[in-house]
Amino acid sequence: MISKHRLVRAWSRTTPLVLATVLLAGPSAPAAAASEQKLLNASYDVSREFYKDLNASLIADWKAKNGTAIEIEQSHNGSSKQARAVIDGLEADVVTLNQVNDIGQLVKAGLVAPDWQKKFPYDASAYKSVTAFIVRKGNPKNIRDWQDLVRDDVKIALVNPKTGGNGRYTFLAAYGWALNEYGGDEAKAKEFVKKLYANVPVLDTGGRAATTTFAQRGIGDVLVTFEAEVYLVRQEFGADGYEVVVPSRTILADFPFAIIEPVVDKHGTRTLAEAYLRYIVSDEGQEIAAKNFYRPNSKAVAEKYAAQFAKVDLIDVQQLFGGWSKAQQTFFDDGGVFDQIYTLAK
């Protein structure tokens, strides 16, 4: 028989455990959730620094104007991985990604309105950036433009276009430059990118991985990535260790955003979500973008920060490749141009 005092002892032994569970769960339980509005922004990998600044600024602004507190949660991953997660049920109220294609996937899944680009200024684009080069101090290999990247003595760090939007921008920028250089000769342009990718010792999967390869592990003479990331590297790893080179012709990267319709309806956060996205394209938001080395969409802010951004000839994806989904098909789908030139290069 189990005696009474034994039972009591067993209970007193489990009580601390129960208490601990309650205490652990306690502080994280959103007690104020009923009155406090909360927003989840699912964003791409390297936007953390920007949204840290922007969210803090909006929360203060909202409090001053409406007198209520709001909370903004962030989730960061590769742009395509985030689109996938939202399709699989990640309840993000808004997405802020780095590829129009990824929002296209969400439109197909019925989560984003087909006319999403018409709902906000600047075609629902947060800001822009261009693909640029970063080289080691003093530019020892004298890298000035795309043609220098195919020299035998140059090793390049960049992102795999199959896995990262950043890498797709790099590929199209190089290819577009070559097309222009060789008077539209596609065979010569393919030959050029083939030689370029033969100079890449490691194809990294994402923007941050390529940066680490170049800056932390010291692999390669040049890193090709977003201009914004290039400036960030200088801040993190020391401005005097690296130099930025903007090539004569490059590509404009777009950072589109959208509201996830069923989620804001479910959470009742449509007003807040719209205010949030409008804040990104307001002059305050655009100024924060410029401070994070993104090229602002707002003309006024762009003029104010003009000295920060080199003037550059831009490749028009629509005109040159017939738009993003066409470019994706031609170049990056299995068996596309990238697969052809990359297997040949190896």
């Binding site: 989840l40 699912a42 990998d45 953390r48 620094e49 949660e73 962030q74 989730s75 960061h76 991953n77 997660a85 990640l90 941050r208 993190e236 790893f237």
Partner: peptide
């Protein structure tokens, strides 16, 4: 996890996140 900061980030995931933030 969906890596929502402060909500679905465990300690090992947090280690990766801050490492990626340099």
């Amino acid at each position: 996890a969906g890596s929502i900061r402060g909500r679905t980030v465990t300690l090992p995931l947090h280690v990766e996140i801050v490492f990626n933030e340099y």
